[in-house]
Nucleic acid binder design. Sequence first.
DNA 1: ATATCGATTATCT
DNA 2: GATAATCGATATG
Length: 210
Amino acid sequence: MKPPGAVRQPLPRIFFDVDPRRVSRALLGKVLMRREGKTLLAGRIVEVEAYLGADDAAAHSAAGPTARNAVLFGPPGHAYVYFIYGNHFCLNVSCLPDGVAGGILFRALEPLQGLEEMAQRRGISIKGSRDLRSLTSGPGRLAEAFGITRERDNGKDLTAASSDLWLADDGFRVRRVQVTPRIGINKAVELPLRYIIAGNDFVSGRGNRQ
DNA sequence: ATATCGATTATCT
DNA sequence: GATAATCGATATG
């Protein structure tokens, strides 16, 4: 694991300029970072879902470009943030070249740094491992813990050195990737496009123990 | 332990 | 007017 300073370097745009399925695998084990003044938030990516541009009825881009999903059709490496169920924000990163839709939904993180700040924003106190899990296990939860909103972050270039929200490689290597159908959708239910770090306790849902 | 349900609003039909 | 890439609370075994 590199020292904290080394993860200031964001993953480059070319990292995201390929098929979402490939980017999904590559993103597992990487770190989502947020800078807020002198506070640094960090969480290891343990669960993501790929949303394809074409041939994927579950993707927000399925019916063509709109004001809401415009980022998915734009250049790779940008944040697509949407508001859902009148309650929650969810974070995605755009993939594939400009003009081609595709994205990845961040579904769960393992909190690494800034846990107190995350707990404060989540409105919980962290005593046991159960509380730790509820910090960032789930797309709405991790967005809240990282203070992600549509107004603040939608369209943000996550590969820019000046960005307060970015993705980094701290040297962690994933042992085994597990692929399953996606969660919480009603269309294209069977497609195996959910990627998790096998055995990781911070994967959302009923756990991932072996 | 699992199951069901209400919250609450931007977006699209 | 219906729906949604969710969450947390409540009910029940």
